[in-house]
């Protein structure tokens, strides 16, 4: 049995994740959710004093905004669109007939105005742009959302629906790159407190196709995105549990985000893969939270 499925089996057996019959789509047990809630409180303890404006969007976004984002240029294979039945009585009958005989009943489903959110910060940029120029000193936002990526896998660290907590900073180049650096330092400190071995490396995003190889090379060459890697299912191939992304002025230009003086805003975001961090904790310290090292339990606020 490979290590990925054995970790997944142990998580199922312990009731931490709940099998749905679809790879990468899992229910969460209470203890698993509690770890995520506690880790989020730890994030709050580090970032709460920065004065970020909190916003929570549902896991679907405006399709027009999704189209503007350019996500399909880079990751068409990961996107998920929401389709619905939009027909009349006759269409309904033929749909039921299709289902009855087991043929493809989804062919007549029509795209709705909603696309599943690929990253927690995607609904933010058009929202902020609508407000007009950023206030003096830029903007700082706190987001969390379930996100969808179509990549079925038996690796519990590669789920199709998972939560991402993010801080997004908008301002001058210096402002947002300082923000990114401060969260790289904080991330290392936080993971040390919960007893996880980490490394920071340039990111390796799964851009699509040959065009994507060039985008990936550019991202690496320009040091635009770093990841904090933690062993989850494999020590040799650790999992990205945080990412630190500097967009230069790309999102500012795309969405019309401007500073007080009218210049285009630079943006950066830091993201926590909440399920991945919880999985790293269970993988490292075991399935029984009561048996986790005392220092780790204290850092997460577990009683005595």
């Amino acid at each position: 049995m490979d290590m990925q499925s054995s970790l997944l089996d142990r998580l199922f057996d312990a009731g931490l994740l709940i099998d749905t019959g679809v790879e990468g789509l899992y229910g969460r047990g209470g203890a698993f959710e509690d770890v995520i809630a506690r880790f989020e409180r730890m994030i709050d303890a580090y970032g709460g004093g920065d004065g970020a404006e909190a916003m929570r969007f549902p896991p679907g976004m405006n399709r027009a905004h999704f189209e503007t984002s350019g996500y399909m240029k880079s990751f068409p294979q990961l996107a998920g669109t929401v389709h619905s039945f939009c027909g009349g009585d006759l269409d309904h009958m033929s749909l039921l007939q299709c289902m009855e005989v087991g043929s493809d009943w989804t062919q007549e489903q029509k795209a709705t105005d909603i696309v599943l959110t690929p990253a927690a910060c995607y609904p933010l940029y058009p929202t902020i742009a609508r407000r007009g120029p950023l206030p003096a000193g830029g903007g700082l936002y706190d987001l969390q959302s379930y996100c969808f990526r179509h990549e079925p896998s038996n690796d519990p660290a590669r789920q199709q629906l998972f939560r991402m907590r993010e801080y997004v900073c908008m301002g001058t180049q210096e402002h947002v790159t300082n923000f990114r650096q401060s969260w790289m330092d904080r991330g290392l400190e936080m993971m040390d407190k919960v007893g996880l071995d980490v490394a920071i490396d340039v990111a390796n995003d799964p851009f699509f196709g040959r065009a994507g190889r060039m985008l990936a090379n550019n991202q690496r060459d320009q040091n635009l995105k770093f990841e904090l890697l933690i062993p989850v299912t494999s020590a040799a191939k650790p999992t990205a549990c945080m990412s630190f992304n500097y967009h230069q002025d790309a999102f500012g230009a795309k969405w019309g985000l401007t500073l007080e003086d009218g210049s285009v805003a630079h943006t950066a975001c830091v993201g926590f893969g909440l399920e991945r961090i919880a999985l790293a904790l269970f993988s490292r310290h075991g399935m029984e939270i009561a048996e986790w090292p005392q220092a780790v339990r204290e850092a997460l606020g577990y009683p005595g």
Binding site: G70, K73, R210, A211, M214, L215, N218, A250
Partner: peptide
Amino acid sequence: LSSFASVQVML
């Protein structure tokens, strides 16, 4: 020349 335009030029 944007990053994505450079990809289109490449292709």
